[in-house]
Design a binder for these strands. Structure first.
Lengths: 207, 207
DNA sequence: GATAAAAACCCCCTTTAGGGGGTATCGTAG
DNA sequence: CTACGATACCCCCTAAAGGGGGTTTTTATC
């Protein structure tokens, strides 16, 4: 059929992709034209598969799904990316959408939402599963969002560098690092470095 | 058929459970007699389903799969638990096996391994997927394993408590906490608290 | 052209963490 | 019976973090 939506799945969980393929193929409105278990595997065949929709996991074994999404949208702007992942953190959702994804599904979403999402993004629209929709609608103050510099510093702090070491590394005054650090504690509502690092990892604020 | 292995799946990823059910039912040797998306849901029907094998996820929405495994093995010792999760950390595998699981599968394992695992544990044996088998065979020094007390302290440190606050909380001398802290830095090869907390979370050493 | 946010910088002072040593008790596996 | 690991405790000293205040410049946005 000409009207069939061509779907490609990229996810390293083989059990999930098998089940998903059956689900989509059985829907009557879409067909899985390719499955890859890594970004590298997907790159090799994407031009050949020519999908309308790319179902993309964030936690790929080789590179981050965030980066791969940006890569795909640059090379194939016509492909509509639908994120499919376990992550329900604001930071990940926001980065994925910023990188060009048209929709976002959480893996414990209803199976019907998968089909609805595929149809919505294939038609050029956007789709968010219920949980993510609620997440993004929360007041701005609830969302933790850091600047590039802040994320950079947070990463170095989590790697165990002291203010002095960070200062040497990125050619800034130790006093500046101290200021950023104090500001991060404020922004993330952390009492000290231990909590700062915990929140950074839990909220996936650092790569 | 009498020889069919009765399987119950407990996993909150609905897409995965659907696919998995098809896979198992189609194998000819096993049949899915029940699916639950939370521990609570499973508790209600487990006595009725009477499975031979319980396919159990670690990341359940209500309680930890680790605790639920112990609970099931206490109430129904005859049920063979086969862990099915994304976690490939030594700490999780070890705790799961200590809590009575007969096998351990990682979600990106081959689908054939799922069926092989089900048959092995149904027969009273054990089964580890390839990756986990390799993990457990690594020299002991590579595995981070903490005592109860150390895990307790690590958790409190990650919550941002100072030595003094921890001392007050668990009725020990602040000097004792300091000693434990130094020892944890050594054991986890961490330079400071920031790295300590990062490793603790990444290696899933704290609940 | 005002406004605001980000980025960079500075000083004073107190608290906490970290590095270096130790000691004593208990239980258990060799 | 002894050797070891786990638990709990102690002192000295330095390094680093945290709390409190600031200032300036640039760069977007309205």
């Amino acid at each position: 059929m000409d009207s069939m939506i061509r779907v490609v799945i990229v996810d390293d969980h083989k059990i999930l992709t098998e089940g998903l393929k059956g689900l989509i193929d059985g829907s009557g409105s879409a067909i899985v034209v390719g499955v890859a278990h890594s970004a590298a595997e997907c790159r090799l065949s994407l031009g050949f598969w020519k999908p309308d929709v790319l179902l993309l996991d964030v936690g790929l074994p080789d590179i981050s799904g965030l980066d791969f999404c940006k890569e795909v949208k640059t090379q194939f702007p016509a492909i509509n990316v639908l994120a499919l992942t376990t992550h329900d953190e604001y930071s990940i959702v926001r980065q994925m959408l910023d990188n060009g994804a048209s929709g976002y599904l959480i893996k414990n979403a209803m199976t019907e939402e998968v089909l609805a999402g595929i149809q919505a993004v294939a038609a050029g629209g956007t789709f968010l599963c219920h949980e993510v929709d609620l997440l993004l609608k929360r007041p701005r103050e609830k969302h933790i969002w850091l600047t590039e510099r802040e994320r950079e510093l947070l990463k170095l702090i989590a790697e165990g560098l002291t203010n002095g070491e960070i200062a040497d590394r990125i050619f800034l005054s130790p006093e500046t690092i101290k200021s950023y650090r104090k500001n991060l504690l404020l922004k993330l509502d952390a009492k000290n470095t231990a909590v700062l690092v915990r929140i950074a990892i839990e909220q996936k604020l650092i790569g």
